[in-house]
Design a protein around this nucleic acid. Structure first.
Length: 216
DNA sequence: CTCCAGGGGGCCA
DNA sequence: TGGCCCCATGGA
């Protein structure tokens, strides 16, 4: 099957298996954005602990993150790992967010400009920027992560795991209508499928809902 | 014990 | 550009 056929059928297969994922888990724009930074190369379970710690210390607000010193912040987010770099990244992000006038002001920018601005913040790379664009700002951006690369590679897209981020993103986006709701559900289903059955340690993926789907 | 998890920056050829 | 190393906790 073609790449676009695979993309279409894969979504249907994953959705039939797992249903609506209700992403991004988080009660506010800020919580989603903070979670996007904290989850860099880190299990979501550990991120939840760090977010809960931030909440219990009343730090999960723009004011709170702006005022807290980096060492205190690092101590609070310890369970998420890389706590020193992530404390730096959160501080850099929150300063930028504040200086930019907050989420409401940033929403006025077009997607391209907003993406460039996000990428200019130290500690926000392409995946983190795209996660925020999709799940905070509801823009039709397809998030590429390790699960996405692995699944596409396994199902016949050669070198998907090595392909340039933006190239893979545009290839996939080219097969889909620019619908933020669809992109939201699609990425969430990929992560769900990756966690559930298509792990790196389980290349056979016998229970994978995508079994039998192959790109030519 | 080892491997991995919803990456990104710095450095160097 | 592309490869390598560093960051760090907690579960399997």
């Amino acid at each position: 099957m073609t790449l676009c056929q695979f993309i279409d059928r894969a979504f249907k297969a994953m959705f039939e298996r797992y249903g609506h994922q209700h992403w991004w888990p988080g009660d506010s724009e800020l919580e989603i954005a903070v979670g996007a930074i904290l989850t860099q190369n880190t299990s979501w379970r550990n991120v939840e602990r760090a977010i809960n710690a931030l909440k219990s210390r009343n730090l999960l607000s723009i004011r709170g993150l702006l005022d807290v010193d980096e060492k205190t912040l690092a101590d609070a987010i310890k369970p998420a790992g890389y706590f020193n770099v992530k404390a730096q990244r959160l501080k850099a992000f929150i300063r930028w967010l504040h200086d930019s006038g907050g989420f409401d002001e940033l929403r006025k920018l077009d997607t391209y400009e907003l993406r460039e601005k996000l990428l200019s913040v130290k500690g926000i790379g392409r995946e983190t920027a795209d996660s925020m664009l999709l799940y905070v700002f509801e823009r039709p951006v397809f998030v590429i992560d390790a699960y996405t690369r692995r699944i596409f590679e396994r199902h016949g897209l050669k070198d998907a795991s090595k392909m340039d981020y933006d190239r893979l993103r545009s290839v996939i986006e080219g097969c889909l209508p620019r619908n933020p709701q669809l992109f939201n559900e699609y990425h969430a289903l990929i992560v769900r499928t990756g966690k559930e059955v298509c792990k790196r340690s389980n290349p056979l993926c016998e229970l994978c809902p995508l079994n039998g789907l192959k790109i030519d």
